[in-house]
Design a protein around this nucleic acid. Structure first.
Lengths: 118, 118
DNA sequence: CGGTATCCTGGATGATACTG
DNA sequence: CAGTATCATCCAGGATACCG
């Protein structure tokens, strides 16, 4: 993924968007920030298993893609807060149908067609 | 990605869905099949740059996830046709807003809010 | 607290050749 | 035509350590 927004070569909008959310933790970061702005340490706790390096790298990419805003407070101790930009909010909204699909078709195995709702 | 549908451990529907469409070419395969059923060789031509191995592997995973149907005709020469299942169609529909977002926010650089981002 | 700097590994992807 | 088999490569992601 590195820095999303590869030079040209997008076939359609979907793979362009995939390039923005293509990191392993990116949609989860967006999901967490969707609920409220978070500090670095908070995000780390929200995403069990992510390393600092990867979290920092994903945040920088999301910032470069204009979906995450980074607000740095020049205090001691240092404080940085991440939040969604309007673009990030709209991305999250565009992701919602996909989330619903995943819930219905991946997370809820049975109870799809019209039979045996457990 | 291997075989999407990792054992548990999904935080929300979105990353579950991401696991299904997480291959480099998967959304493009879905996009191509959305227009019409395709044979293996057709798909290969639709996706310039994909190798046979990766295409076959992605197709098998999409089939295992129930979004692609594989119809094998026992003829000479051999013929196999891939198409979307109803589940695949709904996945594609869930992907549409994301595609629209990518078009508006990644492919079309300017002309967004009312100013000049980037 | 909020990172950066290195080094490293595994899995996804690619190239090529071969088969039913 | 529609793959499979093998080998090579690339790089996102992870582990660890250190810095302002």
């Amino acid at each position: 993924m590195a820095v999303a927004r590869r030079p040209g070569a997008y076939v359609c909008g979907i793979d362009a968007a995939m390039d923005v959310i293509g990191g392993k933790w990116k949609v989860l970061i967006l999901w967490a920030l969707h609920e409220r702005p978070c500090r670095f340490g908070e995000l780390r706790r929200e995403l069990p298993g992510v390393t600092e390096k990867v979290l920092a790298s994903h945040l920088r990419e999301l910032e470069a893609d204009g979906v995450v805003h980074r607000e740095e407070y020049d205090e001691v101790p240092p404080r940085v807060e991440y939040s969604l930009t309007p673009r990030g909010v709209s991305l999250n909204e565009a992701l919602a149908p996909l989330g619903a699909w995943g819930r219905d078709h991946v997370l809820a195995p049975a109870r799809e067609a019209a039979s045996a709702p457990r």
